[in-house]
Amino acid sequence: MIFNMEFKSNFTKTIAWAIVLIVLLGLMMAFYPFLAEPQMNSIFGSMVETFNDSTKEILGFTSSTDITNIGDYLAVIYHYLAVLMFIFAMQLGASSLSKEQTSGNIEYIYSNPISKSEIVTSKLTANLVLYLIFLLIMALATFGFVFIIAASGVNSKYIPEMTDFDVIQALIRIFVSLFGSGLVFMSFGFLLSSMSKSSEHQDAISALFVFLIVLLTIIGKTMGGTFANVVAFFPNVAFATYAFISSNINVLTIGVNLAIFVVFIILTYTIYSNKELKY
């Protein structure tokens, strides 16, 4: 019952977010054939080389990034789209455990024989499934845009040949990184929701929280030193798309983030189980 309620409640939102991001993805993909031109690629490459390593990372590049390689280009695109995807993931969790109190449905839920832990489990499962559906839609749309670009033949002589297997492998790496970081942000949202009595401002709080994390990331990488080492453990950095594409994965930071996800979910169960629900 709770799973179906949560799934139906957020399904329309999931599709709406996917449509918006697909439009943005299409606009960014449209530039790929033109960036593959030798003259444009040379200008772009020269500009990137003027940045130091920390600035390159902030912008989603590595020293080995080849913008004419479709896998590298997709990693750069999703470095920016990921910010919006983090907001969506956190919003799923942030309103999940408090919206029934806002809408007044909590009385109906508690008229059924169900425990608080079952509510958390059902809502967590429903939102994980929705996030996976969202990622699958984005992955299919991305593959579709790559196919359209290849079929169009625009500047095809400048674009390195890439098989369907290569594209799929690149997409798997990118979306594994987005799934991992999305889980952590969703757990932030669930923890926030378990402590909140209303879901009225949760979407705005989620957006502000993600933007704060991104701002701290930029400051940390710019300042360097200890701050940069701390920022390396942020989920958007630990699961950075360019790191997964270049196979430059930091197992320690990923492990810490997975541990954070587990701890936040445990705290969510604990806090919500002891929460007094007024209706």
Rank of each mutant, 00 (worst) to 15 (best):
F175V: 01
L277D: 14
V23E: 04
N236S: 07
S46D: 12
F11C: 09
L267V: 02
A75T: 03
I168S: 10
S187H: 06
P113N: 14
I77K: 10
V263R: 00
F227D: 12
N274V: 06
I67F: 05
S198R: 06
L171D: 11
L124G: 05
K157S: 12
V237K: 12
V184N: 01
K157M: 04
Q169H: 15
D166E: 08
I149L: 12
S273F: 07
G180C: 13
M28E: 09
T270A: 15
L212K: 03
Y32M: 01
V237R: 05
F165E: 13
F190P: 08
I148W: 02
S152L: 13
L25E: 12
I133N: 07
F185N: 09
L171Y: 13
V76F: 01
F179C: 01
I106V: 06
T268G: 00
W17T: 04
I249Y: 07
I254T: 06
E276V: 14
I254M: 10
I114F: 10
V167H: 00
I19A: 15
T142Y: 01
M90V: 12
L252N: 05
N41F: 00
N274L: 05
E49M: 15
E57D: 14
I260F: 10
I205C: 03
A16L: 15
Q101W: 13
T68L: 03
I58L: 15
E37S: 10
F147A: 10
K278V: 05
